[in-house]
Structures are given as C-alpha cells and as structure tokens.
Write a protein that binds this DNA or RNA. Structure first.
Length: 583
DNA sequence: GCCGTTTTCGGCCCGACTGTTTTCAGTCG
C-alpha cells in the first residue's frame, strides 16, 4: 500500500546517514531521520501529494517536500546523489555494525580506505585498526563481535519485508492466465522470524506463462535460474525468490513439501513409510503398486497419514505430529481472536500519530478495546510529565465515551495505560498511588542491558511483584540482527509472571518478535499468560499484530493463553492482579 | 532543515556508558 512511502523513507534515512558520515550538521541529519520516520509511518501515499500537501506531514518542511517531488519527478534527488558520489555505499554499510557509528566509519574509510565489512574484518585481524586515533584493542573486539552478530542473521530479511514481497508476487502471478492456484510456502508460511528466501508455489497445466510473468515482474532485478518447473530470481531489494509450478493435482503434496520444515517433512515421511506409503512433493504413493493415492490438497495428504491438517506455524517437529496422531493439536489463537491491542504509543512521546488518529485507526481494525501506553518520565528523552499524562487521560476518557457509545457491535472501549521503565533495581517510574489510576501498566527494560544475570533476574522479579505491573513489555529486549536478548534466568522470570498474574508480551514488531516462539513454549509450561501487542508507533504498525499472532502460534498458544483475546470483563479481572484489598 | 504555550531565531532529547583518553568523543536508546 504505502510502498512509495517506504522508498522515500529509505532514501532520507540514507541521506541522514550520509550527512552524519561526512560530518555534516548533526541537527540537519536528525531532521532527515525524523522526516524519514514520519513519511514511513504516514497513512497516505506520498507519491500523490504536492509540496503543500507534503508539508502537512510532521517534520516535513518546504525543502524536504521539494525533494520528495523531485524524487517522483526524476527518480532521484540531486542532493542525495551528490553525497552518494563522495562516499562508497559500503561505508554506510559499516555503520550497521553495532558500536560502529558514522564517525568511526569515516575514520576507517579515510585513513585505511576500507569500505566493506570484509575488508574491515581483515584489517582488524591484521591489527591495522589499532593504530588509528581513538581505536584500541577493545574497539577491535567490539567491532568483531558486532560483525558476528550482524552475520548471524546472515542474508536473512525481516518477516515484514519478506511478507510484503511474497504477497505482491502472489497477487501478480494469480492474475496470470492459466494460474489455478498460487501461494507462498517455506519458512515464510511457517512465520519464522527471519526469512532466507521466499518460496512461491503455483499450480498450472502449462508453466510457461507463469515463468515468463515471474521473470518479467517489476521487482525482478536478476534471473538466477530459469526452467520449466523452477525459476529463481533476485529482487531489486536483494531478496531471493523461487517460483515452482506444479500440475494442479499435485498442489497439496507440493505445498506440504515446500512449506517444510525439513524436520517436519522427515517426520511425516517416516509416518508414511510405516504405513507402506511414500510421501514426496508429487503425492502420497503406495509403495507396492506405485500408485498415487492422494495429492490434491494438504488436508487429503495429512488425512491419509492419520493426521488432522497441521497448521504451518506448528510444522517444526516439536511434537506436532505426535499430538496430531493423538488428536491433541491445540486450537491455535488466530488474528481474528485478538480483541484489542494493549501496548501502543502516540505522538505525546515517540509515536508519530496523535491520539485521535491512533484510536480511529484501531477502531477501523475492529478492535473491541484499545490501550494507549505512552512512555513514562524515567525515559527522560520522551519528556513525559505527570501533567501531560493526566491531560492525556482526560482526553482518553472523552474518546472512550465517544467510541463506547457506538454500541456493542462497532463500539470500542479505551484503556489508559503507560509503558513504565524498569530501572536497574526493578523499580518503575511512579509510586503506587499514581500507578493505581492507570487501567493497565506495561513495564519494560530500556537500558542497562548488560547487567549480570543475577541482577537482571532480580530486576524482572521485582517488576513482576509490583501489583500495578500487568505486562512485561518486549521481555528480552532483543533486536533481531542487532542486539541479543538480556542474560537472565528466564525460567525464574516466567514462573514469577505465572505466580503474580503478570502477562508476558509477545511484541509483534518484526524487528523484535519478543518473546520468541521458544521462549513462549517455555513460559507456557510455567503457566504464564501472554499479551500479543503491536507496540505501534504509527497507525501502520497496528497491522504488525499478524506477526505476533504467528509467533504465538509457533508457541502453541490458544485464546486461553492470550489475555487480549478475552472479553473486556475477563481482561479487567486479570488486570486487577493481586491488588484488590491490598492497597 | 524544522519548528513555535521558551515562536520567525535559536534551539533542536539527554543521560549513561564505553573505551579511549588524561578531559573527552562516539554510540546508543
């Protein structure tokens, strides 16, 4: 939808980086960063706006508006091109390494001529970096660690980026004449947190028109391999996409095969062997006669193996086949089960949209309830005060009345909450009296990520014991490919959450997905409850919930585990926690 | 380069942490 917004946002983010790297005005760089964020999160497509309309977007003034118009008119922005000409693209790539910012990247480039991560690693191993002013052995160590972290996510892309590409391609191929079915399979269909390449599957009698359409897609930058059953391309953004075309009657077996996981497929093939059958991407066959028994739908294939259809998010060989055989597959939580979002921001702190716009967008999504949880004062960069928070609450109450009046079907109730900061001792921003007035409190770690494990564990336990803390936000604080999760005794934390009635968040932002599937499985065994939240900082982020739901499914969660699938009365009871009569 | 209950110029988020330095620069959230 807002694809051109993303293009412009990426361009200005790059421009901001280039300004920083070349030692330009830091304030100017920040303005472009802010504009990039605002444009990326803007609801309307910027390609259709004129200079005047563009200037209505916060942090977009005359100069930036004109650059946007220039971009859509000429395909580039001359100011950006000038800086690009001065700095190799690889230098900017260096700043993706954690602990390596624009100043160090420029020093490395100017002094040693290094403009790629590989060259940098070589220079460190050759001990050439430590001669530079401001660089020492520890810096080298940190950079190497950062490179390892960066490469641990490899060439994998985030879930949202891969989903956008895959859905776009599926939509285009579905329109090709002769295409009977088209869907993406692979790790994307299983909603893994990062995606290596996208597998698209199509059913047709004749593969030729589909293959031709595929290699001719606007997003196709390079055709890596081209055949009648399989074609591989690389998109303009560098993502590898495979298209496989199968005969219509093989659809189910092929979809099952290409969805994986490998471990799940091995398990299902074993099951087939035990029954004198053979399972491949072409179908389920009788070994004796060689005759194909079923292959048209996944349901047929699973049923013939004595299994119910297994949701793709469970197909990781984590006991789903055994559970299926016993008829004990969980009834997984679905996106449509989610009644409300319990962690969202507005422009009162670091969100992009005003309260009214966020609430309207939430209502548009059909939520039955919605919580506003802006940051609290201890995250000093957010400039929150008691007065601002109370004024926001007034406005939330008014809006609640307005939206609540729309009745049971289309009405939405608003909760006024807060995202508290859990300090190194496990304390939060406000005293009990003030906290008691919120409808709910999310509490999260935002700093001091490197505390010793014992201290970190105590910090979380203390927060859980707080009778006003309802949800631990993005519990491990990891950022995929950038920052590992905190080191704490998570089992102790999960047990404390279960004991105290504190929910664990499944933060749906594609860069976080925190808790992840494995943590969810562990926490569920402790009896903890969960909240699937968007942590939206713009109206567009509200849609991220789908990724949180997918992650929850990978953790085998049902609606009983997820507090924001519950009716409001049951949710409110949970939010009262242990505090009734204790204060 | 943007913005305005500190308002059309002069600020702009700010404090902590780290590693490199002998008083600070760079990075991060």
């Amino acid at each position: 939808m807002a694809r051109s917004n993303d293009e412009v946002a990426a361009l200005f983010a790059e421009y901001a980086d280039l300004i920083s790297i070349t030692g330009g005005d830091a304030f100017r760089a920040r303005v472009y960063e802010k504009a990039a964020r605002a444009i990326g999160g803007h609801h309307a497509d910027v390609s259709g706006l004129d200079v005047k309309g563009l200037q209505e977007i916060p942090n977009v003034g005359k100069s930036i508006a004109e650059k946007i118009v220039e971009y859509f008119g000429t395909g580039q922005v001359s100011a950006v091109e000038e800086l690009r000409a001065r700095i190799p693209a690889g230098v900017r790539r260096l700043t993706a390494i954690p602990t390596l910012g624009p100043k160090k990247a420029m020093a490395i480039y100017q002094e040693l001529g290094i403009s790629s991560i590989e060259e940098l690693a070589d220079a460190i191993h050759g001990e050439r970096l430590r001669d530079l002013k401001g660089f020492g052995p520890k810096t080298e160590e940190n950079i190497l660690h950062g490179i390892a972290l960066l490469q641990s996510s490899g060439d994998r892309v985030m879930l949202d980026a891969a989903t956008d590409v895959a859905e776009g391609i599926v939509a285009q191929l579905s329109n090709v004449t002769g295409c009977l079915r088209c869907a993406y399979a692979g790790s994307l269909r299983r909603v893994r947190e990062t995606i290596g390449d996208v597998d698209v599957l199509a059913a047709a009698e004749d593969s030729e028109p589909l293959m031709r359409a595929f290699t001719g897609l606007p997003e196709t930058a390079e055709v890596v391999a081209h055949g009648t059953t399989k074609t591989s391309i690389r998109t303009t953004k560098g993502l590898a996409v495979d298209l496989r075309v199968v005969p219509p009657d093989s659809w189910g077996a092929a979809l099952q095969y290409f969805t994986g996981s490998k471990a799940h497929n091995i398990r299902t093939r074993e099951l087939a062997v035990h029954r004198g059958l053979k399972l491949s991407e072409y179908g389920l066959f009788d070994v004796e006669s060689g005759e194909r028994i079923v292959s048209a739908t996944e349901e047929d294939v699973y049923a013939r193996l004595g299994l119910p259809w297994i949701p793709p998010t469970l197909r990781e060989d984590r006991g789903e086949v055994q559970a299926g055989l016993r008829g004990e597959l969980p009834e997984l939580v679905q996106e449509s089960d989610v009644r409300g979002d319990l962690h969202t921001h507005t422009d009162l702190t670091d969100g992009l949209a005003p309260l009214e716009e966020m609430v309207a967008a939430a209502a548009e999504r059909g939520h039955a309830y919605y919580a506003i949880t802006d940051h609290a004062p201890n995250l000093s960069m957010q400039r929150m005060t008691d007065e601002r928070m109370l004024a926001q609450r007034e406005r939330v109450r008014e809006l609640d009345e307005e939206y609540g009046r729309r009745g049971r079907r289309s009405g939405m109730r608003l909760l006024h909450g807060v995202e508290l900061n859990i300090d190194p001792d496990g304390e939060v921003d406000w005293p009990d009296e003030f906290l008691a007035e919120f409808d709910l409190c999310v509490a999260s770690v935002h700093s001091h990520f490197n505390q010793a494990p014992d201290a970190m564990t105590q910090r979380f336990l203390r927060a859980c014991e707080n009778p006003y803390v309802n949800i631990i936000g993005h519990p491990t604080t990891r950022i995929i490919g950038k920052r590992p999760g905190v080191d704490a005794d998570l089992d102790a934390v999960f047990a404390a959450c279960a004991r105290t009635g504190t929910a664990l968040e499944i933060n749906s932002h594609p860069d976080r997905l925190d808790l992840n599937d494995e943590h969810i499985l562990r926490a569920k065994r402790h009896g903890a409850k969960f909240a699937i939240d968007s942590d939206a900082h713009s109206t567009l982020h509200l849609a991220h919930l789908r990724y949180g739901v997918g992650t929850a499914q990978r953790g085998w969660l049902t609606t009983d585990d997820v507090i924001n699938t519950w009716p409001l009365t049951r949710l409110r009871r949970f939010l009262r926690k242990g505090r009734t009569g204790t204060v």
